[in-house]
């Protein structure tokens, strides 16, 4: 088994005294696809937000590709990571949000170009080429110059996926990416993610309520409950062999 690309080691997180995560230990292999499931408030979203550095853990360590995320070595001592250190690691991680968070004043193409040019310092022509190619891959070849408000929710979310993918992250995080979509638009987004999952070498963590989809593409299902990992295993193990009653009730509610 190869070295894990991501390690959550005894992660705790509380917001204003309310414990959300109570000691998460989770190692993720490169190219592994993880479905993070669990009741709302179980801490799924918080866990991936910690990895994206949108939140800071209360305690515990996160290791990305062998490097400590929130701390760095300085004069033989571990100190809090500075912005440069965070940026170096952040570049390996991409994220897609529930509410798309596209930049409304930029076209689909520009949304995908901005980080290529500003972060990876690519030329405008090169960025345009890469961005267009990625948008084509998510089926938006004909919407390169559309502004987000001219696109459907499903299309917007596909732009958001392309925008994250074009940076070539080693780990992709999906935070309930279909929850804000009209039901008839869910499939086109799931289709795109399935495509990435089947071909990509990158690791993926999907926080999702699309249970059938999760079980279909995940290598491992992680069930979070009350801020701890209550159960994990391959989809088959989790569905067929788990004795965890909370998990069974939860799955029962979501699977038709």
């Amino acid at each position: 088994m190869s070295e894990p690309i991501i390690q959550f080691n005894n992660i705790h997180k509380s917001f204003d005294g309310v414990d959300v995560l109570n000691g998460i230990n989770l190692h993720i292999r490169p190219s592994e696809k993880i479905a993070l499931i669990g009741p709302s408030g179980s801490g799924k979203t918080t866990l991936i937000r910690l990895l994206m550095t949108l939140e800071e853990p209360t305690s515990g360590t996160i290791i990305v590709n062998g490097e400590n995320l929130w701390h760095m070595e300085k004069n033989n001592k571990y100190v809090l990571a500075n912005e440069k250190h965070l940026q170096n690691i952040r570049g390996q991680i991409g994220m897609v949000f529930q509410h798309f968070n596209l930049f409304p004043h930029l076209t689909a193409l520009e949304n995908c170009m901005v980080a290529l040019m500003q972060v990876q310092k690519k030329s405008e022509e090169k960025a345009k080429l890469l961005a267009a190619k990625m948008l084509e891959r998510v089926g938006l070849k004909n919407h390169l110059t559309s502004y987000p408000n001219q696109l459907s929710g499903g299309q917007q979310q596909r732009v958001a996926i392309a925008r994250a993918l074009v940076m070539k992250p080693k780990v992709m995080l999906f935070d309930e990416v279909t929850s804000a979509l009209d039901p008839e638009l869910v499939d086109e987004v799931l289709q795109v993610i399935r495509g990435i999952a089947k071909t990509g070498e990158m690791a993926m963590i999907l926080v999702t309520h699309e249970m059938d989809f999760a079980l279909d593409i995940a290598d491992r299902v992680v069930f979070l409950d009350g801020g701890v990992i209550a159960e994990q295993g391959t989809p088959k193990e989790v569905i067929e062999q788990s004795n965890n009653t909370r998990l069974q009730t939860f799955l029962h509610r979501f699977r038709k």
Binding site: M52, L54, Q87, R90, M95, F97, F103, V119, A164, M167
Partner: peptide
Amino acid sequence: ESAKALNL
């Protein structure tokens, strides 16, 4: 947040 996720 999405800008941060893009490492801007």
